[in-house]
Amino acid sequence: MGARIYLHYPGNDEAVAVASGFSWGACLLGFIWALSKKMWFAAFVMLAVNVILFGMGLWGETADLIGLVLSILFAVACGAYGNRWHRWTLEKRGYVVV
């Protein structure tokens, strides 16, 4: 776990802490983690990818193994980029780095 980056909305005294580094919440919980952070588009994309990968598992044994591997890779990618996506979302909403 890396250092935290603090962002605040102009005119508001409260700061939001965003961790840097790997996000276990994004890795293990996926779109539920994104919904808890109010990252609506990211949650929709994560859910869509998970449904597609789940659907691959219904096609047969080989596709099931490929779907499992791709699901694990997608979860690791979400964990690696989750905190960056959260910071980017907050910055797009007008938050600035303190």
Rank of each mutant, 00 (worst) to 15 (best):
G94N: 14
G67F: 03
V98W: 04
M46T: 00
A34M: 09
V76L: 12
V97E: 15
L58S: 10
F41G: 10
L90F: 01
C27F: 13
W88V: 05
L73T: 09
T89G: 07
S36H: 07
A34P: 03
L73D: 07
M39D: 01
G55P: 08
K92D: 14
L47G: 07
M1V: 07
L68F: 10
L28H: 02
S23I: 00
V16R: 14
H86F: 08
L70C: 13
F44T: 13
W40C: 01
M56Q: 11
D13M: 10
D13I: 05
V45L: 13
I5D: 02
L35R: 08
V69E: 04
C78W: 01
L28D: 03
P10A: 04
K38E: 11
I72R: 04
W85A: 06
F41N: 07
G25C: 05
V76A: 09
W33L: 00
I32V: 13
S20H: 06
A77L: 13
S71D: 08
G25K: 03
A42H: 04
C78V: 02
F44G: 14
F74T: 13
V97T: 15
Y81H: 09
W85C: 01
W59P: 01
K92A: 15
E61N: 14
I66W: 06
H8I: 09
I5V: 15
M39T: 04
K38D: 14
S23Q: 01
G30C: 01
A34G: 01
Y9W: 11
D13K: 11
A80Y: 11
L70I: 06
F74A: 12
G2R: 07
A19L: 05
A19Y: 01
G79P: 04
G30N: 07
G2Q: 08
L7E: 08
L58F: 14
G21N: 10
D64S: 15
L7W: 06
C27Y: 02
L28V: 05
F54D: 10
I5R: 15
L65M: 09
V16D: 03
C78T: 02
K37F: 02
I66R: 06
A3Y: 07
R4K: 13
I32G: 02
M46Y: 00
M46P: 01
L65E: 11
F22H: 09
L53M: 05
R84Q: 13
H86N: 10
V69L: 09
W88A: 15
